[in-house]
Design a protein around this nucleic acid. Structure first.
Lengths: 229, 229
DNA sequence: ATATAGTGTGTAATTTTTACACTAAGTAAT
DNA sequence: ATTACTTAGTGTAAAAATTACACACTATAT
């Protein structure tokens, strides 16, 4: 039930927690603000929703402007609207998270005026964040923790071909705990959504691991059943 | 990252899916619109967010205005903002669901100008809804389906003292499937968050069932472990 | 040849889940 | 008081899923 009240004074924005994985660490993309309030603080990238954009499009645009990437997995997860979350007035913000494979060309590009620079920061060592962005980040991490147990989102953080050890590593980083290697493999393989390739890992100075690929077709077929970790 | 752009033309509202349970059926509260667009259509109750309200407060206010109830369990779950979801312009709406025990004094009260009346409608027999409210409702049901498996929200729909059969009934309605009586009882009791009372059900023309109460203190103690259904 | 570092594999014990049917207790009608 | 009716309340065995746990293999580097 909505009425049109054209003189409403609330401002509506989108903020994004961009999770990136480089094979080693889980990171998020932060920008250093160039304007008051919170000038020189680190903050989540965000922006105002354009008049003709859907919310998802708007989030995708923010991501594109920062990284040059398209087609990235993004998900809306919560709205933050405390009347005093922003020192200069009511700003309602909608939070999205994204999952990105780093390494290669995924570096943040030079960006708009309100930020000096953007940086991928390991989640184990984040700076103080502007506004209520710590809260927004916390809730985002919580969401992907929950989601990775039921949906095949871990693959979004990995290259197309990956080893089981890499996959386990992603799970461990997001869940924040060690997993048993044998049990992990047994289970993940039993879902039947991984395709074992003939290829092996390259460039390592030890026995090379077998590469796998996530099989979207098989997953779609089995979709009724959710994955459960 | 938000800037203050005071001349933004998006309108921000909240829509609520109020789930009610009367001991028999699961219902939602719908209002019949008295204004264009969608005059005479049924719609979810909603309103504009007040300038000084938090989002949760705003949702609670909408609920209070319709039902006279306070202290009801409500949860924000998704924002809908398609540029053309509203025929007269961009309206971003934030969806909440609420869980309410019906029977007694929970009747909707006479309501504001934009609605003729409000009605509790069984979810098995809903009318066509205005705007994209069917989509909003669908996603809300999906959310509580998921949540009831891990959080003790079923109790919000039941009176303080309830029988195990009633509790099972709530689970069955929300999950949309029959459950095995013995297995259900075994499991729900094993969580250790129900307190068996000395009282029995009254006013039934057959063997009266034992009454139980949800033990919030015990639940809080065990909280690390989530319930899992 | 040897050291090194990560890969890849199986099993037994435990726990959890599932499927399934009858007796007990209370009320209402005669 | 007998009977009919309706729901409450209970146990077990089989199957499936989860957990805990250790060593031999393979590729590379020196």
């Amino acid at each position: 039930m909505e009425e049109i009240l054209p003189h409403l004074d609330s401002v509506f924005s989108i903020d994004c927690v961009l999770f990136g994985f480089d094979g080693k660490e889980l990171k998020i993309l932060l920008i250093e603000r160039n304007e008051e309030p919170f000038k020189d603080w680190w903050a989540l990238p965000g922006n105002i929703v354009g008049a003709d954009e859907s919310l998802d499009q708007s989030a995708a645009r923010i991501l594109y402007e920062l990284t040059g990437l398209r087609g990235i997995y993004m998900e809306q997860y919560y709205a933050f609207g405390d009347p005093n979350r922003h020192p200069q007035g009511r700003v309602i913000t909608l939070a999205y998270y994204a999952l990105i494979r780093l390494g290669g060309d995924k570096e943040p590009r030079p960006i708009s005026t309100y930020a000096k620079r953007a940086n991928w920061m390991p989640i184990t060592d984040l700076p103080k964040l502007a506004f209520d962005h710590q809260k927004i980040y916390d809730k985002g991490l919580e969401k992907i923790k929950r989601r990775i147990k039921h949906q095949p989102i871990a693959f979004e953080l990995l290259p197309e071909k990956f080893t089981l050890t890499q996959l386990q590593h992603v799970y461990e980083l997001i869940l924040g705990k060690k997993l048993d290697k044998r049990n992990f493999r047994k289970k993940i393989v039993s879902f039947g959504v991984l395709k074992e390739l003939d290829e092996k890992q390259k460039g390592v100075s030890y026995r090379a691991a077998t590469l796998y690929r996530f099989d979207k077709r098989k997953y779609a077929k089995l979709f009724g059943k959710e994955i459960s970790f």
